[in-house]
Nucleic acid binder design. Structure first.
Length: 567
RNA sequence: GAUCCUGUAGCUCAGCUGGUAGAGCAAUACACUUUUAAUGUAUGGGCCCUGGGUUCGAAUCCCAGCGGGAUCACCA
Protein backbone atom coordinates (compact mmCIF):
# COMPACT_ATOMS: atom_id res chain seq x y z
CA UNK A 1 0.00 0.00 0.00
CA UNK A 2 1.49 3.31 -0.97
CA UNK A 3 1.38 6.27 1.36
CA UNK A 4 -0.79 8.26 -0.99
CA UNK A 5 -3.67 5.85 -0.30
CA UNK A 6 -3.64 6.52 3.41
CA UNK A 7 -5.99 9.01 4.95
CA UNK A 8 -4.68 12.12 6.63
CA UNK A 9 -5.27 10.63 10.06
CA UNK A 10 -3.49 7.40 9.19
CA UNK A 11 -0.47 9.32 7.95
CA UNK A 12 -0.36 11.35 11.15
CA UNK A 13 -0.42 8.19 13.24
CA UNK A 14 2.47 6.76 11.25
CA UNK A 15 4.37 9.98 11.88
CA UNK A 16 3.67 9.69 15.59
CA UNK A 17 4.96 6.14 15.42
CA UNK A 18 8.24 7.33 13.94
CA UNK A 19 8.58 10.16 16.45
CA UNK A 20 8.11 7.70 19.29
CA UNK A 21 10.86 5.54 17.85
CA UNK A 22 13.06 8.63 17.54
CA UNK A 23 12.50 9.24 21.26
CA UNK A 24 13.68 5.71 21.96
CA UNK A 25 10.19 4.42 22.72
CA UNK A 26 9.30 1.02 21.28
CA UNK A 27 5.70 1.28 20.07
CA UNK A 28 5.36 -2.51 20.13
CA UNK A 29 7.33 -3.68 23.18
CA UNK A 30 7.80 -7.40 23.67
CA UNK A 31 7.86 -7.69 27.45
CA UNK A 32 4.79 -8.67 29.43
CA UNK A 33 3.00 -5.94 31.29
CA UNK A 34 2.34 -6.85 34.94
CA UNK A 35 -1.39 -6.16 34.99
CA UNK A 36 -2.93 -6.76 38.42
CA UNK A 37 -6.26 -4.96 38.16
CA UNK A 38 -9.27 -4.60 35.93
CA UNK A 39 -11.45 -1.57 35.39
CA UNK A 40 -14.61 -3.24 36.62
CA UNK A 41 -12.96 -4.54 39.79
CA UNK A 42 -11.54 -1.13 40.63
CA UNK A 43 -15.02 0.32 40.39
CA UNK A 44 -16.58 -2.52 42.36
CA UNK A 45 -13.99 -2.65 45.12
CA UNK A 46 -12.73 0.88 45.48
CA UNK A 47 -9.98 1.43 48.06
CA UNK A 48 -8.67 4.96 48.22
CA UNK A 49 -4.95 5.09 47.54
CA UNK A 50 -4.55 1.43 46.59
CA UNK A 51 -1.80 0.80 44.05
CA UNK A 52 -2.94 -0.77 40.77
CA UNK A 53 -1.44 -1.72 37.45
CA UNK A 54 -3.80 -2.00 34.50
CA UNK A 55 -3.70 -1.95 30.75
CA UNK A 56 -6.04 -1.36 27.87
CA UNK A 57 -7.00 0.89 25.02
CA UNK A 58 -7.11 4.62 25.55
CA UNK A 59 -10.52 5.66 24.20
CA UNK A 60 -10.71 9.30 25.18
CA UNK A 61 -8.46 12.11 26.29
CA UNK A 62 -9.45 15.33 28.02
CA UNK A 63 -6.39 17.51 28.16
CA UNK A 64 -6.45 20.58 30.40
CA UNK A 65 -2.98 21.99 30.28
CA UNK A 66 -0.90 20.47 32.99
CA UNK A 67 -3.49 17.87 33.91
CA UNK A 68 -5.47 15.43 31.83
CA UNK A 69 -8.03 12.72 32.05
CA UNK A 70 -8.19 9.70 29.81
CA UNK A 71 -10.39 6.65 29.62
CA UNK A 72 -8.88 3.19 29.48
CA UNK A 73 -10.93 0.24 28.28
CA UNK A 74 -9.80 -3.24 29.25
CA UNK A 75 -11.57 -6.57 28.91
CA UNK A 76 -13.81 -5.77 31.87
CA UNK A 77 -14.87 -2.25 30.98
CA UNK A 78 -13.73 1.35 31.16
CA UNK A 79 -12.12 3.44 33.83
CA UNK A 80 -10.98 7.00 33.99
CA UNK A 81 -7.32 7.73 34.63
CA UNK A 82 -5.74 11.03 35.68
CA UNK A 83 -2.42 12.34 34.40
CA UNK A 84 -0.56 15.21 36.07
CA UNK A 85 2.39 16.75 34.25
CA UNK A 86 4.56 17.61 37.21
CA UNK A 87 4.03 14.28 38.88
CA UNK A 88 4.85 12.33 35.75
CA UNK A 89 7.77 14.61 34.93
CA UNK A 90 9.14 16.00 38.20
CA UNK A 91 12.33 17.35 36.54
CA UNK A 92 12.91 19.97 33.84
CA UNK A 93 12.17 17.57 31.00
CA UNK A 94 8.44 17.47 30.41
CA UNK A 95 8.68 15.43 27.19
CA UNK A 96 6.89 12.39 28.56
CA UNK A 97 3.78 14.41 29.31
CA UNK A 98 3.88 17.19 26.73
CA UNK A 99 5.03 15.14 23.77
CA UNK A 100 4.40 11.48 24.41
CA UNK A 101 1.12 11.63 26.27
CA UNK A 102 -0.44 14.75 24.78
CA UNK A 103 0.70 14.44 21.18
CA UNK A 104 2.09 11.05 20.25
CA UNK A 105 -0.55 8.90 21.88
CA UNK A 106 -3.68 8.46 19.84
CA UNK A 107 -7.11 7.20 20.73
CA UNK A 108 -7.11 3.44 20.37
CA UNK A 109 -3.51 2.95 21.52
CA UNK A 110 -2.91 0.30 24.15
CA UNK A 111 -1.22 1.71 27.21
CA UNK A 112 -0.23 0.36 30.58
CA UNK A 113 -0.86 2.38 33.69
CA UNK A 114 0.58 2.22 37.19
CA UNK A 115 -0.97 4.41 39.85
CA UNK A 116 -3.38 4.49 42.73
CA UNK A 117 -7.13 4.63 43.08
CA UNK A 118 -8.81 7.91 43.97
CA UNK A 119 -12.06 9.75 43.55
CA UNK A 120 -12.27 13.03 41.65
CA UNK A 121 -14.02 16.10 42.99
CA UNK A 122 -17.09 15.02 41.09
CA UNK A 123 -16.85 11.62 42.73
CA UNK A 124 -15.80 9.47 39.80
CA UNK A 125 -13.60 6.53 40.66
CA UNK A 126 -10.34 6.99 38.79
CA UNK A 127 -6.71 5.96 38.77
CA UNK A 128 -4.08 8.57 39.50
CA UNK A 129 -1.26 7.72 37.12
CA UNK A 130 2.29 7.64 38.40
CA UNK A 131 3.75 5.74 35.46
CA UNK A 132 2.52 4.85 32.00
CA UNK A 133 3.85 2.91 29.04
CA UNK A 134 2.82 2.57 25.43
CA UNK A 135 2.03 -1.10 24.83
CA UNK A 136 0.84 -1.01 21.24
CA UNK A 137 0.27 1.75 18.74
CA UNK A 138 -2.97 1.95 16.77
CA UNK A 139 -2.54 3.16 13.20
CA UNK A 140 -6.19 3.54 12.28
CA UNK A 141 -8.72 5.82 13.92
CA UNK A 142 -11.54 3.96 15.64
CA UNK A 143 -15.11 5.15 15.26
CA UNK A 144 -15.79 6.47 18.73
CA UNK A 145 -19.38 6.86 19.82
CA UNK A 146 -19.99 9.19 22.73
CA UNK A 147 -22.58 8.93 25.42
CA UNK A 148 -24.01 12.11 26.84
CA UNK A 149 -25.20 12.83 30.37
CA UNK A 150 -28.67 11.59 29.48
CA UNK A 151 -27.24 8.28 28.34
CA UNK A 152 -27.91 8.96 24.67
CA UNK A 153 -25.27 7.52 22.36
CA UNK A 154 -24.05 9.87 19.65
CA UNK A 155 -22.29 8.87 16.45
CA UNK A 156 -22.79 5.20 17.18
CA UNK A 157 -20.95 2.78 14.91
CA UNK A 158 -24.04 1.26 13.36
CA UNK A 159 -23.47 0.38 9.72
CA UNK A 160 -24.18 -3.38 9.71
CA UNK A 161 -21.82 -4.04 6.86
CA UNK A 162 -18.87 -2.44 8.59
CA UNK A 163 -19.82 -3.93 11.93
CA UNK A 164 -19.85 -7.49 10.56
CA UNK A 165 -16.85 -7.13 8.30
CA UNK A 166 -14.81 -5.49 11.04
CA UNK A 167 -16.21 -7.22 14.09
CA UNK A 168 -13.00 -6.38 15.99
CA UNK A 169 -13.95 -2.71 15.74
CA UNK A 170 -17.55 -3.42 16.63
CA UNK A 171 -16.42 -5.24 19.76
CA UNK A 172 -14.09 -2.46 20.85
CA UNK A 173 -16.64 0.24 20.41
CA UNK A 174 -20.06 -1.28 21.10
CA UNK A 175 -20.23 -2.75 24.57
CA UNK A 176 -23.57 -4.49 24.05
CA UNK A 177 -22.07 -6.52 21.21
CA UNK A 178 -19.53 -8.02 23.53
CA UNK A 179 -22.29 -8.88 25.99
CA UNK A 180 -24.12 -10.91 23.34
CA UNK A 181 -21.07 -13.07 22.78
CA UNK A 182 -20.40 -13.43 26.49
CA UNK A 183 -23.94 -14.74 26.80
CA UNK A 184 -23.39 -17.06 23.89
CA UNK A 185 -20.47 -18.64 25.69
CA UNK A 186 -22.47 -18.80 28.91
CA UNK A 187 -25.16 -20.73 27.04
CA UNK A 188 -22.67 -23.29 25.77
CA UNK A 189 -21.13 -23.61 29.22
CA UNK A 190 -24.54 -24.04 30.81
CA UNK A 191 -25.48 -26.83 28.41
CA UNK A 192 -22.20 -28.62 28.94
CA UNK A 193 -22.64 -28.37 32.69
CA UNK A 194 -26.18 -29.73 32.47
CA UNK A 195 -25.17 -32.69 30.29
CA UNK A 196 -22.01 -33.47 32.19
CA UNK A 197 -23.89 -33.44 35.46
CA UNK A 198 -26.26 -36.00 33.94
CA UNK A 199 -23.22 -38.13 33.13
CA UNK A 200 -23.23 -37.74 29.35
CA UNK A 201 -20.07 -37.41 27.35
CA UNK A 202 -18.99 -34.71 24.94
CA UNK A 203 -17.56 -36.22 21.77
CA UNK A 204 -16.20 -35.17 18.39
CA UNK A 205 -17.25 -36.72 15.10
CA UNK A 206 -16.13 -36.07 11.52
CA UNK A 207 -16.77 -32.77 9.83
CA UNK A 208 -15.57 -34.19 6.53
CA UNK A 209 -17.93 -36.95 5.53
CA UNK A 210 -18.00 -39.22 2.51
CA UNK A 211 -21.80 -39.36 2.73
CA UNK A 212 -23.52 -36.26 4.06
CA UNK A 213 -26.24 -37.72 6.24
CA UNK A 214 -28.56 -37.00 9.11
CA UNK A 215 -30.51 -34.20 7.48
CA UNK A 216 -31.89 -33.07 4.16
CA UNK A 217 -29.86 -30.22 2.80
CA UNK A 218 -27.46 -29.34 0.04
CA UNK A 219 -23.91 -29.92 1.21
CA UNK A 220 -20.66 -28.15 0.47
CA UNK A 221 -18.40 -30.43 -1.47
CA UNK A 222 -14.65 -30.64 -1.34
CA UNK A 223 -12.00 -33.04 -2.55
CA UNK A 224 -9.44 -35.14 -0.74
CA UNK A 225 -6.32 -35.30 -2.86
CA UNK A 226 -4.58 -38.33 -1.39
CA UNK A 227 -7.67 -40.52 -1.55
CA UNK A 228 -8.89 -38.79 -4.69
CA UNK A 229 -12.47 -38.83 -3.48
CA UNK A 230 -15.08 -36.16 -2.96
CA UNK A 231 -15.81 -35.29 0.65
CA UNK A 232 -18.70 -33.29 2.02
CA UNK A 233 -18.80 -30.82 4.87
CA UNK A 234 -21.26 -32.24 7.34
CA UNK A 235 -24.86 -31.08 7.24
CA UNK A 236 -25.49 -32.90 10.53
CA UNK A 237 -23.70 -35.25 12.89
CA UNK A 238 -26.66 -37.40 13.82
CA UNK A 239 -25.63 -40.67 12.17
CA UNK A 240 -22.19 -40.59 13.79
CA UNK A 241 -23.55 -40.00 17.28
CA UNK A 242 -25.90 -42.93 16.83
CA UNK A 243 -22.96 -45.11 15.84
CA UNK A 244 -21.48 -44.22 19.21
CA UNK A 245 -24.65 -45.32 20.95
CA UNK A 246 -24.33 -48.61 19.03
CA UNK A 247 -20.80 -48.73 20.38
CA UNK A 248 -22.09 -48.72 23.92
CA UNK A 249 -22.01 -45.15 25.19
CA UNK A 250 -24.94 -44.28 27.40
CA UNK A 251 -25.21 -40.64 26.38
CA UNK A 252 -23.16 -38.60 23.92
CA UNK A 253 -23.42 -35.02 22.80
CA UNK A 254 -21.61 -32.73 20.43
CA UNK A 255 -21.73 -29.08 19.52
CA UNK A 256 -21.61 -29.48 15.80
CA UNK A 257 -20.64 -26.83 13.29
CA UNK A 258 -22.83 -27.77 10.33
CA UNK A 259 -22.57 -26.49 6.77
CA UNK A 260 -25.42 -26.08 4.34
CA UNK A 261 -25.03 -24.77 0.86
CA UNK A 262 -28.29 -22.87 0.75
CA UNK A 263 -29.59 -19.36 0.91
CA UNK A 264 -28.51 -16.80 3.47
CA UNK A 265 -30.86 -14.50 5.30
CA UNK A 266 -31.33 -13.15 8.74
CA UNK A 267 -31.94 -16.59 10.23
CA UNK A 268 -29.61 -18.66 8.05
CA UNK A 269 -25.85 -18.66 7.77
CA UNK A 270 -24.00 -21.23 5.62
CA UNK A 271 -22.25 -22.50 8.73
CA UNK A 272 -24.14 -22.72 11.97
CA UNK A 273 -24.00 -24.59 15.22
CA UNK A 274 -26.29 -27.36 16.31
CA UNK A 275 -26.10 -29.25 19.57
CA UNK A 276 -27.08 -32.88 19.33
CA UNK A 277 -27.45 -35.29 22.21
CA UNK A 278 -28.38 -39.01 22.18
CA UNK A 279 -29.33 -40.90 25.30
CA UNK A 280 -29.79 -44.67 25.41
CA UNK A 281 -32.89 -46.35 26.88
CA UNK A 282 -34.97 -43.17 26.68
CA UNK A 283 -37.90 -42.13 24.49
CA UNK A 284 -39.17 -38.81 23.22
CA UNK A 285 -41.45 -38.30 26.21
CA UNK A 286 -38.45 -38.43 28.49
CA UNK A 287 -36.63 -36.12 26.12
CA UNK A 288 -39.39 -33.50 26.36
CA UNK A 289 -39.00 -33.42 30.13
CA UNK A 290 -35.23 -33.26 29.74
CA UNK A 291 -35.43 -30.47 27.16
CA UNK A 292 -37.65 -28.19 29.20
CA UNK A 293 -35.43 -28.68 32.25
CA UNK A 294 -32.38 -27.95 30.11
CA UNK A 295 -33.76 -24.76 28.63
CA UNK A 296 -35.03 -23.44 31.92
CA UNK A 297 -31.56 -24.02 33.37
CA UNK A 298 -29.82 -22.38 30.39
CA UNK A 299 -32.05 -19.31 30.48
CA UNK A 300 -31.27 -18.86 34.18
CA UNK A 301 -27.54 -19.26 33.62
CA UNK A 302 -27.47 -16.84 30.71
CA UNK A 303 -29.88 -14.13 31.82
CA UNK A 304 -30.48 -14.86 35.50
CA UNK A 305 -34.18 -15.28 34.75
CA UNK A 306 -36.39 -17.62 32.74
CA UNK A 307 -38.07 -14.62 31.11
CA UNK A 308 -36.65 -13.41 27.83
CA UNK A 309 -37.79 -10.49 25.74
CA UNK A 310 -37.73 -11.06 21.98
CA UNK A 311 -39.01 -8.11 19.99
CA UNK A 312 -42.60 -7.62 21.05
CA UNK A 313 -42.78 -11.05 22.65
CA UNK A 314 -42.08 -11.98 26.23
CA UNK A 315 -41.02 -15.60 26.38
CA UNK A 316 -40.90 -17.70 29.53
CA UNK A 317 -38.53 -20.66 29.51
CA UNK A 318 -39.89 -21.94 32.81
CA UNK A 319 -40.80 -25.63 32.53
CA UNK A 320 -43.11 -27.33 31.73
CA UNK A 321 -44.03 -26.43 28.16
CA UNK A 322 -47.31 -27.08 26.42
CA UNK A 323 -47.45 -30.24 24.28
CA UNK A 324 -49.65 -30.37 21.17
CA UNK A 325 -49.79 -33.07 18.53
CA UNK A 326 -49.35 -31.94 14.97
CA UNK A 327 -52.78 -33.31 14.08
CA UNK A 328 -54.40 -31.34 16.91
CA UNK A 329 -52.44 -28.23 15.97
CA UNK A 330 -53.74 -28.36 12.40
CA UNK A 331 -57.28 -28.92 13.66
CA UNK A 332 -56.88 -25.96 16.03
CA UNK A 333 -55.82 -23.53 13.35
CA UNK A 334 -57.53 -24.81 10.21
CA UNK A 335 -60.34 -27.06 11.38
CA UNK A 336 -58.99 -29.76 9.07
CA UNK A 337 -58.24 -33.24 10.41
CA UNK A 338 -55.31 -34.87 8.60
CA UNK A 339 -55.94 -38.28 10.14
CA UNK A 340 -56.55 -41.02 7.56
CA UNK A 341 -56.46 -38.67 4.57
CA UNK A 342 -54.96 -39.69 1.23
CA UNK A 343 -52.26 -37.72 -0.54
CA UNK A 344 -54.79 -36.26 -2.99
CA UNK A 345 -57.16 -35.23 -0.21
CA UNK A 346 -54.30 -33.52 1.60
CA UNK A 347 -53.18 -31.76 -1.56
CA UNK A 348 -56.70 -30.50 -2.20
CA UNK A 349 -57.07 -29.33 1.40
CA UNK A 350 -53.75 -27.51 1.31
CA UNK A 351 -54.68 -25.87 -1.95
CA UNK A 352 -57.97 -24.80 -0.38
CA UNK A 353 -56.01 -23.07 2.38
CA UNK A 354 -54.10 -21.03 -0.17
CA UNK A 355 -50.92 -23.08 0.11
CA UNK A 356 -48.87 -23.64 -3.01
CA UNK A 357 -48.57 -27.33 -3.81
CA UNK A 358 -47.08 -29.45 -6.58
CA UNK A 359 -46.87 -33.08 -7.65
CA UNK A 360 -43.44 -33.71 -6.10
CA UNK A 361 -44.95 -33.30 -2.65
CA UNK A 362 -45.72 -36.48 -0.75
CA UNK A 363 -48.08 -36.79 2.19
CA UNK A 364 -45.48 -35.76 4.72
CA UNK A 365 -44.41 -32.73 2.78
CA UNK A 366 -48.02 -31.63 2.30
CA UNK A 367 -48.77 -31.89 6.02
CA UNK A 368 -45.57 -30.02 6.74
CA UNK A 369 -46.62 -27.26 4.35
CA UNK A 370 -50.00 -26.94 6.06
CA UNK A 371 -48.40 -26.82 9.48
CA UNK A 372 -45.73 -24.37 8.34
CA UNK A 373 -48.22 -22.13 6.63
CA UNK A 374 -51.07 -22.08 9.11
CA UNK A 375 -49.92 -23.24 12.56
CA UNK A 376 -46.22 -22.79 13.23
CA UNK A 377 -46.28 -19.02 13.50
CA UNK A 378 -48.84 -19.08 16.30
CA UNK A 379 -46.63 -20.68 18.92
CA UNK A 380 -44.90 -17.87 20.79
CA UNK A 381 -44.27 -19.51 24.15
CA UNK A 382 -42.11 -22.63 24.08
CA UNK A 383 -44.39 -25.40 22.82
CA UNK A 384 -43.68 -29.01 21.90
CA UNK A 385 -45.32 -30.08 18.66
CA UNK A 386 -45.42 -33.86 18.64
CA UNK A 387 -46.14 -36.86 16.43
CA UNK A 388 -45.04 -35.85 12.95
CA UNK A 389 -46.07 -37.83 9.87
CA UNK A 390 -43.80 -40.70 9.00
CA UNK A 391 -42.76 -39.43 5.56
CA UNK A 392 -41.11 -36.35 6.98
CA UNK A 393 -39.04 -38.16 9.56
CA UNK A 394 -36.95 -40.92 7.99
CA UNK A 395 -34.73 -41.38 11.05
CA UNK A 396 -37.52 -41.50 13.60
CA UNK A 397 -39.28 -44.46 15.20
CA UNK A 398 -42.88 -45.16 14.23
CA UNK A 399 -45.38 -44.03 16.83
CA UNK A 400 -46.27 -46.77 19.32
CA UNK A 401 -50.02 -46.09 18.82
CA UNK A 402 -50.29 -45.00 15.19
CA UNK A 403 -48.11 -46.42 12.38
CA UNK A 404 -48.64 -43.36 10.16
CA UNK A 405 -46.94 -41.13 12.72
CA UNK A 406 -43.53 -40.94 14.31
CA UNK A 407 -42.39 -40.33 17.86
CA UNK A 408 -40.98 -36.94 17.11
CA UNK A 409 -41.28 -33.49 18.60
CA UNK A 410 -40.12 -30.06 17.66
CA UNK A 411 -39.90 -27.21 20.10
CA UNK A 412 -41.42 -24.04 18.71
CA UNK A 413 -40.58 -20.61 20.10
CA UNK A 414 -41.85 -17.39 18.54
CA UNK A 415 -43.11 -19.39 15.60
CA UNK A 416 -39.74 -20.94 14.80
CA UNK A 417 -38.25 -24.36 15.34
CA UNK A 418 -35.58 -24.35 18.01
CA UNK A 419 -35.23 -28.04 18.79
CA UNK A 420 -36.04 -31.33 17.13
CA UNK A 421 -36.09 -34.74 18.79
CA UNK A 422 -37.01 -38.35 18.18
CA UNK A 423 -37.40 -41.71 19.68
CA UNK A 424 -34.64 -42.81 17.36
CA UNK A 425 -35.39 -45.41 14.76
CA UNK A 426 -33.32 -48.50 15.67
CA UNK A 427 -35.01 -51.11 13.48
CA UNK A 428 -32.43 -51.60 10.72
CA UNK A 429 -34.91 -53.10 8.28
CA UNK A 430 -37.40 -50.28 8.76
CA UNK A 431 -34.53 -47.80 8.47
CA UNK A 432 -33.44 -49.27 5.16
CA UNK A 433 -36.97 -49.01 3.82
CA UNK A 434 -37.23 -45.40 4.94
CA UNK A 435 -34.00 -44.55 3.14
CA UNK A 436 -35.34 -46.23 0.03
CA UNK A 437 -38.49 -44.11 0.24
CA UNK A 438 -36.21 -41.09 0.39
CA UNK A 439 -34.58 -42.32 -2.80
CA UNK A 440 -37.99 -42.46 -4.45
CA UNK A 441 -38.69 -38.92 -3.33
CA UNK A 442 -35.38 -37.91 -4.85
CA UNK A 443 -36.43 -39.50 -8.12
CA UNK A 444 -39.68 -37.54 -7.95
CA UNK A 445 -37.64 -34.36 -7.86
CA UNK A 446 -37.24 -33.66 -4.15
CA UNK A 447 -33.63 -32.49 -4.10
CA UNK A 448 -33.55 -32.47 -0.31
CA UNK A 449 -34.18 -36.17 0.17
CA UNK A 450 -31.53 -38.10 2.06
CA UNK A 451 -28.65 -40.20 0.82
CA UNK A 452 -28.35 -43.82 1.92
CA UNK A 453 -25.53 -44.46 4.35
CA UNK A 454 -24.81 -48.20 4.15
CA UNK A 455 -22.35 -48.18 7.01
CA UNK A 456 -24.91 -46.57 9.27
CA UNK A 457 -27.36 -49.34 8.37
CA UNK A 458 -24.67 -51.91 9.15
CA UNK A 459 -24.19 -50.32 12.55
CA UNK A 460 -27.92 -50.53 13.24
CA UNK A 461 -27.90 -54.17 12.22
CA UNK A 462 -25.46 -54.87 15.05
CA UNK A 463 -28.14 -53.35 17.30
CA UNK A 464 -28.78 -49.94 18.78
CA UNK A 465 -30.56 -49.74 22.13
CA UNK A 466 -33.76 -47.72 22.27
CA UNK A 467 -32.50 -44.16 22.21
CA UNK A 468 -33.83 -40.67 22.19
CA UNK A 469 -31.99 -37.87 20.44
CA UNK A 470 -32.33 -34.11 20.53
CA UNK A 471 -30.95 -31.38 18.31
CA UNK A 472 -30.97 -27.72 19.21
CA UNK A 473 -30.19 -24.81 16.90
CA UNK A 474 -27.75 -22.96 19.09
CA UNK A 475 -27.67 -19.81 17.02
CA UNK A 476 -31.42 -19.51 17.04
CA UNK A 477 -31.61 -20.16 20.76
CA UNK A 478 -29.07 -17.49 21.59
CA UNK A 479 -30.97 -15.08 19.33
CA UNK A 480 -33.97 -15.58 21.60
CA UNK A 481 -31.93 -15.25 24.76
CA UNK A 482 -30.29 -12.00 23.66
CA UNK A 483 -33.19 -10.43 21.77
CA UNK A 484 -31.47 -10.37 18.41
CA UNK A 485 -33.66 -10.91 15.33
CA UNK A 486 -30.66 -11.58 13.10
CA UNK A 487 -28.26 -14.54 13.16
CA UNK A 488 -25.49 -12.21 12.08
CA UNK A 489 -25.68 -10.52 15.46
CA UNK A 490 -24.91 -13.73 17.31
CA UNK A 491 -22.06 -14.97 15.09
CA UNK A 492 -18.71 -13.30 15.51
CA UNK A 493 -17.98 -13.47 11.80
CA UNK A 494 -21.14 -14.01 9.75
CA UNK A 495 -20.60 -14.97 6.15
CA UNK A 496 -20.35 -11.93 3.89
CA UNK A 497 -19.75 -11.48 0.22
CA UNK A 498 -15.99 -11.09 -0.24
CA UNK A 499 -14.85 -7.55 0.06
CA UNK A 500 -13.68 -5.90 -3.14
CA UNK A 501 -10.70 -3.73 -2.39
CA UNK A 502 -11.43 -0.10 -3.17
CA UNK A 503 -12.48 0.58 -6.73
CA UNK A 504 -12.70 -2.81 -8.31
CA UNK A 505 -10.43 -3.59 -11.23
CA UNK A 506 -11.93 -5.91 -13.80
CA UNK A 507 -9.41 -7.46 -16.15
CA UNK A 508 -10.29 -9.07 -19.44
CA UNK A 509 -8.81 -12.36 -20.65
CA UNK A 510 -5.68 -10.92 -22.23
CA UNK A 511 -4.98 -8.61 -19.34
CA UNK A 512 -5.39 -11.45 -16.89
CA UNK A 513 -2.99 -13.61 -18.90
CA UNK A 514 -0.34 -10.89 -18.96
CA UNK A 515 -0.81 -10.19 -15.28
CA UNK A 516 -0.51 -13.87 -14.40
CA UNK A 517 2.64 -14.19 -16.46
CA UNK A 518 4.15 -11.25 -14.59
CA UNK A 519 3.25 -12.76 -11.25
CA UNK A 520 5.61 -15.62 -11.97
CA UNK A 521 8.28 -13.46 -13.63
CA UNK A 522 8.17 -10.37 -11.39
CA UNK A 523 10.33 -8.42 -13.86
CA UNK A 524 10.90 -8.81 -17.59
CA UNK A 525 12.08 -7.03 -20.70
CA UNK A 526 9.02 -5.48 -22.33
CA UNK A 527 9.89 -7.11 -25.65
CA UNK A 528 10.32 -10.49 -23.98
CA UNK A 529 6.91 -10.25 -22.32
CA UNK A 530 5.41 -9.27 -25.68
CA UNK A 531 6.85 -12.46 -27.17
CA UNK A 532 4.76 -14.67 -24.90
CA UNK A 533 1.50 -13.44 -26.37
CA UNK A 534 0.26 -14.06 -29.86
CA UNK A 535 -2.03 -11.06 -30.09
CA UNK A 536 -2.40 -7.98 -32.22
CA UNK A 537 -0.28 -4.94 -31.46
CA UNK A 538 -3.36 -2.93 -30.71
CA UNK A 539 -4.71 -5.45 -28.19
CA UNK A 540 -1.24 -5.68 -26.66
CA UNK A 541 -1.05 -1.94 -26.33
CA UNK A 542 -4.47 -1.42 -24.75
CA UNK A 543 -4.05 -4.37 -22.41
CA UNK A 544 -0.71 -3.14 -21.13
CA UNK A 545 -2.09 0.35 -20.68
CA UNK A 546 -4.98 -0.97 -18.58
CA UNK A 547 -2.53 -2.84 -16.38
CA UNK A 548 -0.22 0.11 -15.89
CA UNK A 549 -3.08 2.54 -15.38
CA UNK A 550 -4.42 0.36 -12.58
CA UNK A 551 -0.91 0.29 -11.10
CA UNK A 552 -0.61 -3.43 -11.35
CA UNK A 553 2.45 -3.17 -13.59
CA UNK A 554 5.05 -0.48 -14.16
CA UNK A 555 7.00 0.09 -17.34
CA UNK A 556 10.34 1.77 -16.79
CA UNK A 557 13.61 2.49 -18.58
CA UNK A 558 17.02 1.21 -17.55
CA UNK A 559 19.62 2.62 -19.93
CA UNK A 560 18.22 1.79 -23.35
CA UNK A 561 16.14 -1.12 -22.16
CA UNK A 562 12.42 -0.98 -21.51
CA UNK A 563 11.47 -3.19 -18.58
CA UNK A 564 8.18 -4.23 -16.98
CA UNK A 565 7.84 -5.02 -13.32
CA UNK A 566 5.09 -6.21 -11.05
CA UNK A 567 3.99 -3.69 -8.46
C1' G B 1 -34.99 -15.09 -6.83
C1' A B 2 -38.77 -10.57 -6.23
C1' U B 3 -39.86 -5.76 -4.21
C1' C B 4 -38.54 -1.48 -1.52
C1' C B 5 -34.68 1.46 0.94
C1' U B 6 -29.56 2.78 0.87
C1' G B 7 -24.07 4.12 -0.60
C1' U B 8 -21.39 11.94 0.52
C1' A B 9 -14.89 13.46 5.31
C1' G B 10 -11.99 8.45 9.97
C1' C B 11 -17.47 7.94 12.33
C1' U B 12 -22.82 9.60 12.37
C1' C B 13 -25.42 12.32 8.96
C1' A B 14 -27.42 17.14 6.07
C1' G B 15 -27.23 18.69 1.05
C1' C B 16 -34.50 21.59 -1.67
C1' U B 17 -37.41 22.09 -8.21
C1' G B 18 -29.73 20.28 -11.30
C1' G B 19 -25.39 25.68 -10.55
C1' U B 20 -18.38 22.09 -8.85
C1' A B 21 -19.80 20.21 -0.90
C1' G B 22 -21.75 21.16 4.76
C1' A B 23 -22.46 20.06 10.34
C1' G B 24 -21.22 17.43 14.90
C1' C B 25 -17.67 14.17 16.71
C1' A B 26 -12.61 12.57 15.43
C1' A B 27 -7.85 15.05 13.56
C1' U B 28 -4.06 19.35 13.64
C1' A B 29 -2.26 24.03 16.32
C1' C B 30 -2.63 27.22 20.64
C1' A B 31 -4.73 28.10 25.74
C1' C B 32 -6.25 25.65 30.19
C1' U B 33 -3.82 21.54 37.22
C1' U B 34 -10.06 17.30 39.13
C1' U B 35 -12.62 17.11 33.73
C1' U B 36 -16.36 13.76 32.00
C1' A B 37 -20.50 14.39 25.19
C1' A B 38 -14.59 18.92 29.08
C1' U B 39 -14.20 24.07 27.21
C1' G B 40 -12.47 28.32 24.02
C1' U B 41 -10.03 30.06 19.39
C1' A B 42 -8.04 28.79 14.71
C1' U B 43 -6.90 25.10 10.78
C1' G B 44 -6.75 20.95 7.51
C1' G B 45 -9.42 16.97 5.49
C1' G B 46 -13.93 14.61 -0.21
C1' C B 47 -12.58 9.53 -7.18
C1' C B 48 -20.10 12.66 -3.42
C1' C B 49 -19.81 3.59 -4.71
C1' U B 50 -18.51 2.38 -10.21
C1' G B 51 -19.63 2.98 -15.50
C1' G B 52 -22.70 5.09 -19.11
C1' G B 53 -26.63 8.74 -20.54
C1' U B 54 -29.49 13.56 -20.46
C1' U B 55 -27.73 18.71 -19.88
C1' C B 56 -24.16 24.63 -21.08
C1' G B 57 -23.64 22.30 -16.22
C1' A B 58 -24.97 16.09 -12.28
C1' A B 59 -23.70 14.40 -5.34
C1' U B 60 -28.69 15.68 -7.21
C1' C B 61 -32.35 13.37 -12.97
C1' C B 62 -32.27 8.50 -16.13
C1' C B 63 -30.07 3.50 -17.25
C1' A B 64 -26.79 -0.44 -15.95
C1' G B 65 -23.53 -2.60 -12.47
C1' C B 66 -21.34 -3.53 -7.52
C1' G B 67 -21.93 -3.40 -2.00
C1' G B 68 -25.26 -3.30 2.14
C1' G B 69 -30.10 -3.37 4.75
C1' A B 70 -35.40 -4.58 5.20
C1' U B 71 -39.70 -7.40 3.63
C1' C B 72 -41.24 -11.70 0.96
C1' A B 73 -40.16 -16.42 -1.43
C1' C B 74 -36.91 -20.66 -0.82
C1' C B 75 -34.45 -23.54 3.06
C1' A B 76 -38.00 -29.41 8.17
Amino acid sequence: MSHSELSEQELLRRESLQKLRDLGIDPYPAALYPVDAFAADIKAQFEDGKQVCLAGRMLSQRIMGKASFAEIQDASGRIQVYFNRDELCPGEDKTLYNEVFKKLLDLGDFIGIKGHMFKTQVGEISVHVTEFQLLSKSLRPLPLPKTDAAGVVHDAFTDPELRYRQRYVDLVVNRNVKDVFIKRTKLFNAMRAFFNRAGYMEVETPVLQAIPGGASAKPFITHHNALDIPLYMRIANELYLKRLIVGGFDGVYEFSKNFRNEGMDRTHNPEFTAMEIYVAYKDYNWMMDFTEQLLEFCAMEVNGTTIAQFGDHTIDFKAPYKRVTMRQSIIDFTGFDIAGKTEDELRAAAKGMGIEVDQTMGKGKLIDEIFGGKCEGNYIQPTFITDYPKEMSPLCKVHRDDPSLTERFELMICGKEVANAYSELNDPIDQRERFEEQLKLQERGDDEAMFIDQDFLRALEYGMPPTSGLGIGMDRLIMYLTNNPSIQEVLFFPQMRPETQGSKIVLNETETAIFEKMQTEKQLLLSELRGYFDISNKLWDTSLKTLTKNQLLTVFKEGDLLLVKLN
